[in-house]
Design a protein around this nucleic acid. Structure first.
Lengths: 316, 316
DNA sequence: GTGGATAGTTGACTCCGTCAAGTTTTAGCG
DNA sequence: CGCTAAAACTTGACGGAGTCAACTATCCAC
């Protein structure tokens, strides 16, 4: 519906106005009168890649060459930088002087302090949530621009609830399976915790730039089999091999834990998931229809049997 | 630990740099050559509160008076605004002309389009998540500045998982009750859904500026009693009477649903919660120690019995 | 009506930011 | 080797951004 889009856009604009103002206030705070904003940006760039030519700075900051040239001249006059001669005699590489470094340190500390004060009311969890929210904004708005560091970590408090939430929201939005799926997921979580044996079962969370982006649970199925459940990767984090990494982690854990194989249940409609399992050498062993979520749903059981002679089957 | 703070601050600074650049790029996009950035901000303010004096604009935008005066003169010269005479003969209230309104409409559409393109890859759920993340950032950084609209709504897919997550994270962080609490919460959710009868049980979510900020579940306890569970309000949303609103909602629902009263179980250590229940005329009926979460925990049962002669007991 | 505050204007100044026209050096090519 | 195009800056010119201080006209309170 187009109305939703309009509402979202209005809210984004609102946030942009708010954040513009916030950044403005912060800058006024930490820049005192020693530096103007573009000067500060420039100084930051100089510091972070020190013997550097004007051209590099120019396209890193997207500044006009003439403008940049004048700021640099000003910096030199104030004694914050010196300019040498490079291999290429046209270039005049810039380096910081002692004074320049001290200036930067001063401004840097002030900026830290301004931010520290801004977040001083928050406890650690809230601060982390704040940073996660920021990373999320960035991932949504500029997926290509974000660093994209993927990390797999062990689950901790709250992660299981998050898994339930995301499963429910995702399947509800895309397939209309609602409340019952959420209850099923919650039941899976309850059973997982109640039967949790760190040597036989586990759960992993994938983080993309520190933002929770995927999950996978491995429980003990009995019969020397492990069972895979609640496999999920956030839409914004797709195409980075996160599911593969999670699956590889789980497979090697299951092998080391002494399981003979892994069983899982998935829905026929989930094409990407089926390809994932096939890629990791799982084999489909049967299909069934169930009616748990209101309408009939086609499901499939897949299994991976470990052979002792080796290949773990990780691709991509 | 101070190191955490440093990491958070570094990430915030990173985000600030990123967002500054994004906003810059967006502005370049939609402003064409018709308007400069401050002009656009000013025009926006004029439009949103139209017959308006320069002084109001001045402190709404935090602009210098002289600077503002000159921009306004420019606007007038270009025929976008006209200036009348108010009650106060010193003031020269500003109104838009037809031309000004058309200009604004043009720029506004361009800005909408630029943003629509930015979020074009996102589906509805992701867009909402983006907006929520933004609201979250704002609530954390400027709790007082945010609008603070509280809304109570019915629960939907994913909300129950969220409730589990927040319960687990909160109690783990503050009291060290970990996994078992999460399993218990998940079990409560499973049972709630399995026994869900819209006429007898329900669950509400409180939103602050569109961000999930609190929850409350009312299930059918039998014996003509309803049972309150998973009552929670986010730290960033405290002191706004959200818990009171949730509780009032639940109480009136329970009464209309024909329950004779409400029972709940809480921990002795949760002082704010106990005060909340007392404020709503709940009465403590017994105490008990349990060992579910590792160490011994003191709990209490409270009850509210509805009398037919009325007072619902809502305060604050 | 007088003194102090308020609404707004104007002048002077510095930095921001772009465009176009330079200078010096380099790299490629015949 | 010399010529040319391009790169790495620099400089001039210009208008807007943003601040400060001085100014006019009006209002309000006593």
């Amino acid at each position: 519906m187009n109305h939703d889009l309009d509402v979202s856009i209005a809210q984004i604009r609102n946030f942009n106005r708010y954040y513009t103002q916030l950044i403005g206030a912060l800058n006024a705070d930490f820049l005192g009168s020693e530096l103007t904003m573009p000067e500060a940006r420039l100084l930051y760039e100089i510091v972070s890649s020190e013997p550097v030519s004007a051209t590099v700075l120019q396209d890193r900051l997207g500044m006009d060459a003439g403008y940049l040239s004048r700021i640099i001249a000003r910096f030199e006059k104030r004694g914050w930088i010196v300019r040498g001669r490079g291999e290429d005699a046209r270039a005049r590489p810039i380096s910081l002087t002692q004074d320049g470094a001290e200036l930067f340190a001063r401004v840097d500390v002030r900026q830290r302090d301004a931010l520290a004060q801004l977040v001083s009311e928050l406890d650690r969890g809230e601060r982390e949530d704040l940073v996660r929210s920021m990373a999320r904004v960035r991932l949504y708005l500029s997926p290509d621009l974000a660093p994209g560091d993927v990390r797999i970590r062990n689950f901790r408090s709250g992660d299981l609830g998050w898994m339930i939430q995301r499963q429910a929201q995702f399947y509800d939005a895309h397939y209309g399976w609602g409340l019952q799926l959420e209850a099923t997921a919650a039941e899976i979580v309850t059973n997982f915790v109640r039967q949790y044996d760190p040597a036989r079962s586990h759960c992993w969370i994938a983080e993309l730039d520190g933002v929770m982006a995927g999950s996978l649970m491995l429980s003990d199925e009995g019969e020397d089999l492990a069972r895979l459940r609640l496999v999920f990767v956030e839409p914004f984090a797709r195409k980075r091999g996160i599911a593969d990494q999670l699956l590889a982690e789980a497979t090697s854990f299951a092998q080391n834990a002494g399981h003979r194989g892994i069983r899982l249940w998935t829905h026929t409609v989930l094409d990407a998931a089926r390809r994932l399992y096939a890629r990791h050498e799982f084999v489909q062993v049967n299909t069934a229809t169930h009616y748990e979520f209101g309408e009939p749903v086609e499901g499939e059981t897949w299994e991976l049997r470990f052979s002792d002679c080796g290949s773990k089957g990780q691709s991509k």
